[in-house]
Simulated scan of single mutants.
Amino acid sequence: MAAHRAAPPEQALAGFSPGLPFAVAFSGGADSTALLLACSQRWPGQVRAVHIHHGLQAAADGFESHCRALCVVLGVPLTVRRVQAGHASGQSPEDAARQARYAALAEAVKTEWPEVRDIVLAQHADDQIETLLIALSRGAGLPGLASMPAHWQRQGLAWHRPWLGVPGASLREWLQSQGQTWVEDPSNADEKFTRNRIRARVLPALAEALPAFRETFARSAAHAAQAQEVLNEVAAQDLAQVGVPPRIHALQQLSRARQALVLRHWLRQLHATTPSTAQLHELLDQVAACTTRGHRLHLKVGQGFVERYGAGLSFLAC
């Protein structure tokens, strides 16, 4: 590579400005190894690392040993958290593991390095496309089609994904150019997982048929994210008008589409649950039918029940 041309990881970090110091979620795989190495080169002495040990496979201890050894070489402080993520009814093991991982990352940073306010994650362009395709396969709306955000706030921390414009192959090529090894998670080759099937079968076909698909798909996801931001603003304004909890008569003054929008917003923001499409349609039908004081309403929605309470709606978690 010519000296004047930056490698894709270096280009991605050129426009990235995390608060210093910051933490990197470090699994030991190629993506997070590239992230830790590139960040430690760009911000020496300002990087911390958190390794999450899931204990789901025999190779997990080897992952931890690799991470510890590399952090010693790089002079990066490392902390390890072990999690055992059980999944609730209707929740996938992958989703349970992801939520446990984020909670452990936040806990580790707040406990070990209270001065750290930013956490950096290694999901890249291929991960983003896989997320979009999974959302499409499930008939997702705009929140799903928006895929993964590059920046967001959670648990009082700023989270970042600077690799979303970088293909996974480019990260591996860059690591090889640096003479840096990484660990391979055996589960990544198991095609019983939808994401792995997409990676092994769909992405190569897309690359052959639509060479620019990573850029164009990512652009569509960005458009969806922008549209969702506008809808979130509308939903917040409508919720302020209909009240918290929502008043039935005020809801009925809105169009059915805006009722759906504000009810999703209320359930997601205040009760951390999301209704299925069928549940939401039934809830809208019941709201429309609430024309007398005696009309009762009790529906399973997300992780709880929506009930009529006087002139409004209430939510009871399971």
Rank of each mutant, 00 (worst) to 15 (best):
S65R: 15
S32R: 02
H87L: 00
A38E: 11
A88W: 03
V24H: 10
H54V: 00
R82Q: 14
A88K: 14
V76E: 04
R82G: 10
G90V: 07
Q41W: 10
A60Y: 08
R48C: 06
G29V: 01
L78D: 05
V72D: 15
A69T: 14
L36E: 03
A69F: 09
Q46H: 12
W43S: 05
Q57V: 06
G45R: 05
R48Y: 09
L36I: 05
Q57A: 15
P77S: 05
V72F: 01
G28N: 12
L78K: 11
Q46M: 15
V80T: 15
T79W: 05
C71R: 07
A58D: 14
A58Q: 13
T79S: 12
P77Q: 01
V83E: 10
H51I: 02
R82Y: 02
F26E: 05
A96N: 05
A34D: 09
T33G: 08
L70R: 15
H66Q: 13
P93W: 01
P44D: 09
A60C: 13
R42E: 01
T79I: 03
V50D: 10
A25R: 09
H66E: 10
A58F: 01
A88T: 09
L78R: 05
V83Q: 07
V47C: 04
S92Y: 00
S89M: 08
G55Q: 05
V80K: 02
R68K: 15
V76F: 07
A49I: 03
V50I: 13
S65C: 10
D31C: 00
A25G: 14
V73P: 01
T33W: 04
H54N: 11
S32Y: 03
P77T: 04
S65M: 09
A23Y: 10
G29W: 01
L37D: 13
